[in-house]
Design a protein around this nucleic acid. Sequence first.
DNA 1: CGGCAGCATTGATCCAGATCATTGCCGCCC
DNA 2: GGGCGGCAATGATCTGGATCAATGCTGCCG
Lengths: 250, 250
Amino acid sequence: MRIAEPLQDDCPGAVQRDCRHGHTENGCEDCKVRLFSVCAALESCELDELDRISHARQIPAHSTLFEQGALAGSVFNVTEGIVRLYKSLPDGRRQITGFALPGDFLGLALQDRYGVSAEAVTPVSVCRFLRTAFLSYVDRKPHLLRRLHEFAGHELSLAQDQMLLLGRRTAEEKIAAFLLNMQARYARIKSMSVTVPLPMSRQDIADYLGLTIETVSRTVTRLAREKVLLIVPDGVRLLDQERLKRIGVA
Amino acid sequence: MRIAEPLQDDCPGAVQRDCRHGHTENGCEDCKVRLFSVCAALESCELDELDRISHARQIPAHSTLFEQGALAGSVFNVTEGIVRLYKSLPDGRRQITGFALPGDFLGLALQDRYGVSAEAVTPVSVCRFLRTAFLSYVDRKPHLLRRLHEFAGHELSLAQDQMLLLGRRTAEEKIAAFLLNMQARYARIKSMSVTVPLPMSRQDIADYLGLTIETVSRTVTRLAREKVLLIVPDGVRLLDQERLKRIGVA
DNA sequence: CGGCAGCATTGATCCAGATCATTGCCGCCC
DNA sequence: GGGCGGCAATGATCTGGATCAATGCTGCCG
């Protein structure tokens, strides 16, 4: 499962740092690992060590990283592309519990089985750690475990926000909250932009928000008709962010 | 927030254990703490130490333990009664994210602010730890932190199940899953019984399942009419558990 | 180039569950 | 006892979003 939403401005250690490669707060261009989400947790020497035990790997679009209930052999760090995490019912109904963006970790809960399934939405690059290696690494860094636990708490808090969204918000509110959230997350990895890429299908968005494709489509179209957004190839441009926030936030 | 659903049969250390008080797997009758949910995490001597830094406290029904966003000064262990944990929207819509039963911990994520609000449903007994004391205790037990992190992972998994329920299940499925879940949890603290106490109001159940009171009421009534359950004072008796499982499980 | 498969959009209709309204059932206090 | 306030149950009606059904828009492949 995904742990650790990239932190917003509340990331205390998000400062420029160096290592032999010249790591920045976003990880290091030369390393396989992109430690965006735990940027503040690691010293640069630790990043090097973590890098040493990782294996870069490419996953084509729509293929599976791991399945719910399978033995959790690996921890992943997404370096490129988007991954969907989901649970499903025997009759095919599906709930996407989250999308993992570059910098996010999968399997950080370190449970012995994966709690959700993970599939590449786009072609994805990850770097993979053997769970055993990662565990023994963590065991040697007690304060890192503290940090991981904090992340788990943050992740749990996001899950609870999503429960509120799924249980009590209208279709329009769900869409608005989703777009603002994606914008904020992309802002952390690309430069801030009013354009929000949406590489996932309408079905994915629907399964994330507890709606149908038709409702997603209609709601987005209506918001575009009302000049709140503009539909562009591969995404959406947020025209009236104030209005969106009024709809979607708190 | 609540951490640590009482584990089911997958709780590896759930064996009879003794201490100077004669602790059992459910904690100890003489101690203030009821360490039900982390039963396997602690040696009995540790239970004693934890007990020493705790303060028992009574909370009347419907009063607040803590509010979402407030500084998380304490960690609580529920020893008696039921607590509801929830998030709410400014317009009053509310999502209950969980019910804490005796043995459950609140605030175990050890974040510096509470992620949800907590209110006593019934009169409640808790034992309270100062977060600082609890933290320094945890710092001295590295394997305990591991255990806490595992619990956080389990909690996250439950939250994801709840997302699937809120986003993709019908009213009837929600009710069935809720009743079976409550039964399983009560079975851990009382003797296994077909009768499930429901001390919380219909509004609470509705806000937990993303429904209205009327839908909860009608669905329960219908299941009773179909002889799947029997409505008894303060709860419900599960008559046809097979049928309920067919409706409510996976 | 045409055909076709896989989306997204759009329209027409339906229905599960929400909303509104009433009634009944306690428990409590005067 | 009688009045009242806070549920829960139930009935009548409404509606947001689901379902069913075309239609269009790519991009790909022969």
